[in-house]
């Protein structure tokens, strides 16, 4: 299987890059548009989208008291449908205390530890995915809206640099696949443009819900690069760049992908 990936990736490198450089705004496509009709149907119907199981868990957690503060998210934030509307579309967002952007999972954990006085939830744990999916669900169909200012700019630039830099044993850049060769096949899969519109999402390959960082780890491992730890600054910078690159595209959480 690793051989298959290798040869497919190399073949992809050899195939002359029809396009090179950034994707013009009118040609941006969500991964949704590259999926089969059947997989799109799973995402479209809340009553059969398995990602909704996590969203419902998240709703239960939102209303459950936790920590030594003995407070639920709802105690401070009220109805998530109004208080969390549009929030996920702005993340990663700059955190003044840390002096750098944080992603939505990290932001939720700040409230867990700082406000609820509860231990942080592990990355990719059921609970953190469920809460993140529930919060992000409140932004569904809203446009991604990453505002860049002087404070964020250096992190955006670092993310952009990581996206365009060749890395791993296969010496490939994200952009070589996702900017230059999207729409082509790599082994069995179509290469998408890598817009993070639907996270956390239900990936058929995972048979469960996963975060954007989990997805990025899959791509890094695919090109034989050492994946960063969950929550690592390198990851958040890359997420910031990807979200900014998708500005204006609609949030799909919980999306479904192959």
């Amino acid at each position: 299987m690793s051989l298959r990936f290798l040869s497919a990736a190399l073949a992809c490198l050899v195939c002359t890059s029809a396009r090179a450089g950034e994707i013009p705004p009118d040609q941006r496509r969500s991964g949704y548009e590259l999926m089969s009709r059947e997989t799109r149907a799973i995402q479209d119907d809340d009553t059969t989208n398995p990602g909704m199981l996590w969203v419902l868990d998240g709703e239960a957690l939102w209303n459950r008291k936790a920590g030594t503060a003995d407070r639920a998210c709802a105690a401070c934030h009220g109805d998530a449908r109004t208080s969390m509307k549009g929030v996920a579309a702005r993340y990663p967002a700059f955190d003044a205390a840390l002096g750098r952007p944080v992603n939505l999972e990290q932001r939720i954990n700040f409230c867990r530890t700082g406000r609820q006085k509860a231990p942080p939830l592990a990355f990719e744990s059921r609970e953190l995915l469920a809460l993140t999916a529930y919060v992000a669900r409140q932004s569904r169909d809203l446009p991604i809206n990453i505002a860049i200012d002087a404070r964020n700019k250096p992190f955006l630039d670092a993310g952009s640099e990581a996206f365009h830099r060749r890395q791993g044993q296969l010496n490939l850049a994200c952009s070589q696949c996702h900017d230059d060769n999207w729409g082509k096949r790599l082994a069995g899969s179509l290469i998408p443009q890598a817009h993070p519109t639907g996270y956390p999402l239900y990936r058929l390959e995972w048979q469960g819900l996963g975060s954007l960082e989990r997805r990025l780890r899959n791509c890094l491992i695919g090109i034989r690069a050492e994946p960063h730890a969950y929550g690592a600054p390198e990851f958040v910078d890359l997420e910031l760049y990807l979200m900014w690159r998708a500005n204006g595209m609609k949030v799909e959480t919980p999306a479904v992908r192959p």
């Binding site: 089969s36 059947e38 997989t39 149907a41 799973i42 390959e205 048979q207 192959p258």
Partner: peptide
């Protein structure tokens, strides 16, 4: 479906 994206979940 005659052709599918992933064999893990074929409706």
């Amino acid at each position: 479906p005659p052709l599918i994206d992933n064999g893990n979940s074929v409706p």
